[in-house]
Structures are given as structure tokens and as C-alpha cells.
């Protein structure tokens, strides 16, 4: 019997925290030989630190935002960069492609960390006090950014002014005007109350949230074939559950935040506006013109092309390779 230590870092009650519990329960219900000890909350360190602990082998598995895997591969940097993917389905196909499977093997060999699978979650939204209606409105906007170069580059490409702020301090930073906006998955944002300080929720589907499970490669290789299969099965099941409940809860979370705050939901997507309006009322939604979104998309992609092939960025041709995936 093997017990794996699994950490999900996010606070109790969040989607990731529940996913960690679910992973443990699925394996238990199947009577699998591999068991999970789930460590809740940020008690082992922040996401980057726990990721390093997985690499070192003191923690076995981490379930976290894919952003924290980007330092392992220049290709993965492209997955947390604005407008690289056409839509949710496109991103899903890229993650299911053979190329991605090869990449997982390569990262495991080079970094000692294996990506077990990903859950493709809904898009992130901008939470701002102003109501952006055009590409110009992003010019100079101080947007909170995590300490990762692809995010910084991505916000800069849109003309915004990325400001690094600790996730825990974002609400206060919004409140006091240290930053003008935050960017995050609405279900993740809701418990942090950003909408009380920055009530306008702009969803341009420029970046999707991706959740990954990473395991220490030595630990993975030490598992029997049956144990590997059981774990993989459980991870896949949890990922499916996460993707489904996130998309279900996301619209509800947006509607709930609109009711609590004074702002609107702004999106280019008519279908999404309709779904939100059904829950929060038609007066709470507004349109972001498609042409303006197109402008932002071109700015982001032009900057991305410029970085292609430069040291520390994705290889020449990667962007075309991604676009070629159906």
C-alpha cells in the first residue's frame, strides 16, 4: 500500500481544496492500493514553494494553477498568455494532443516533475472599478499580476501596467487604489471579495484558467502499474468533475457578485451575457464590442510573435503549431 501526500494550497472550501478531497475519496471508494493524504490550505508554503517541494520529493503531488508549471517549459508559458487560444475547445484539444503527452515525458525527464493531467476551467475575468468598453480603456490600467514573466508580458502587451501584488493583498490593493484591477477566475475570486472593491467584471475569454496535477517523477516511477493506472484514473475523474462544476458555478458566482456589487458584466459573447442576465437581470450586463476585442487580440499576438525565439520564451514556430491544432 502506498500513501501519497497531496497538497492543494488554496483555502478550505475552494474548488481546488474540494478537488483534493475528491481525489482521496475516489481512490478510497475504488479500494485502490494507492491512497492519498490530503494536506489542506497553504500550511506547507505557497504554490511555487510546494511545487519546488514536489520537485525535491518532500511532497508527492500538487494540484494547482497551471501557471506554476510554466517555469518548467517555455511552451507552457504560452498557455498563460492572452489570446493564444481561440476558445475553450481549442485549449482543450491542445492539452489532449500527442504533443502535450510528449511534453509531459520531457518535463518529467528534465525536471523530475510529471504533469498527470489538466482540468480546463472557464476564462478569467478582469475585476475593475472602471467599466472598460474599448481596447483603449486598458491603456495604463494597473492590473495585479502574479510574479511570472509570461503574465507580466501578457498584461503589458494589452497596454496595461502590471503591478505585482500578493494574492492575499489584492482586495485591499483594489480598495485603496494601489491597483485598478485584478484578473482571475470568478469562482476563485468570489471568496476574496474583489467585487466589493472592483465591481465590474469583464470577460474577454483572453485567458482560461487551467488546473494541473503534478507528481514527483521518482515517486511516480516507484508506483506499480496498477497503482499508476488507479491514480491516473482518479485524476482524470477529478479533472472532469472540476471542469464541469467550475463552468456551472462560474456563471452563478458572477451573478452573485453582480448582485452584491454595483457593477456590470461586460463581455463580447452574447451567449454568456444572456446566461448571466438570466440570473442577475438584463440591466447588469453590457457588451464589449467584438471589434475592440479584436484590437486587443492583435496587440497581444503581435507582442507574442516578437518574443518568439528569444531566450526564455517559446521556440520559433510554436504559435503557428498551436494555431494548427483543431
Amino acid at each position: 500500500e502506498t500513501t501519497l501526500t497531496v497538497a492543494t494550497v488554496d483555502a478550505a472550501g475552494t474548488l481546488r481544496n474540494l478537488a483534493g478531497k475528491k481525489l482521496r475519496d475516489i481512490l478510497e471508494e475504488r479500494g485502490a492500493k494507492v491512497k492519498v493524504r490530503h494536506i489542506e490550505g497553504p500550511v506547507l508554503g505557497n504554490a511555487a514553494q510546494v511545487r519546488d517541494q514536489v520537485a525535491e520529493g518532500s511532497v508527492d503531488v500538487i494540484g494547482t494553477d497551471a501557471a506554476w508549471a510554466t517555469p518548467y517549459s517555455n511552451f507552457l508559458k504560452a498557455t498563460s498568455y492572452a489570446f493564444i487560444f481561440r476558445d475553450h475547445a481549442h485549449l482543450t484539444s491542445v492539452f489532449e494532443s500527442d504533443f502535450m503527452k510528449g511534453l509531459a515525458d520531457q518535463i518529467a525527464a528534465e525536471q523530475g516533475v510529471r504533469i498527470l493531467g489538466a482540468a480546463i476551467l472557464p476564462s478569467r475575468a478582469y475585476f475593475t472599478s472602471v467599466e472598460p468598453r474599448s481596447a483603449n480603456d486598458f491603456e495604463g490600467l494597473k492590473i495585479r499580476s502574479p510574479q511570472l514573466d509570461n503574465w507580466l508580458a501578457s498584461y503589458k502587451a494589452l497596454g496595461a501596467n502590471p503591478t505585482p501584488v500578493n494574492w492575499n493583498e489584492v482586495f485591499l490593493a483594489l480598495q485603496t487604489g494601489l491597483v485598478d484591477g485584478g484578473h482571475g477566475l470568478p469562482v476563485d475570486v468570489k471568496p476574496n471579495n474583489w467585487h466589493m472593491a472592483a465591481p465590474n467584471i469583464t470577460d474577454l475569454e483572453d485567458m482560461f484558467a487551467v488546473h494541473v496535477w503534478m507528481i514527483n517523477e521518482g515517486r511516480w516511477q516507484a508506483l506499480s502499474e496498477q497503482e499508476q493506472a488507479d491514480l491516473q484514473h482518479a485524476v482524470n475523474e477529478v479533472n472532469a468533475w472540476m471542469a464541469e462544476s467550475a463552468s456551472k458555478q462560474n456563471i452563478e458566482a458572477i451573478a452573485q457578485m453582480l448582485k452584491e456589487g454595483e457593477g456590470s458584466y461586460i463581455s463580447h459573447s452574447a451567449a454568456k451575457r444572456e446566461a448571466v442576465a438570466a440570473l442577475a437581470g438584463a440591466e447588469k450586463v453590457a457588451e464589449f464590442p467584438n471589434a475592440e476585442r479584436e484590437k486587443l487580440r492583435e496587440m497581444a499576438l503581435a507582442a507574442a510573435r516578437k518574443m518568439e525565439g528569444q531566450t526564455g520564451w517559446w521556440d520559433e514556430g510554436v504559435l503557428d503549431q498551436i494555431q494548427a491544432v483543431k
Partner: peptide
């Protein structure tokens, strides 16, 4: 013993990237 492992990831924002 941790030098090698921590050298795999780099700092991200400095003008020149430094191993962690």
C-alpha cells in the same frame, strides 16, 4: 544538496535571470 534542484527554476522578473 538542494542547490541543483533549486537551480532548475529561475527568477522571473530580474533583468538577468538568476537560479532560485
Amino acid at each position: 544538496g538542494y542547490v541543483a534542484i533549486q537551480s532548475r527554476t529561475l527568477t522571473v522578473s530580474l533583468p538577468f535571470n538568476v537560479p532560485r
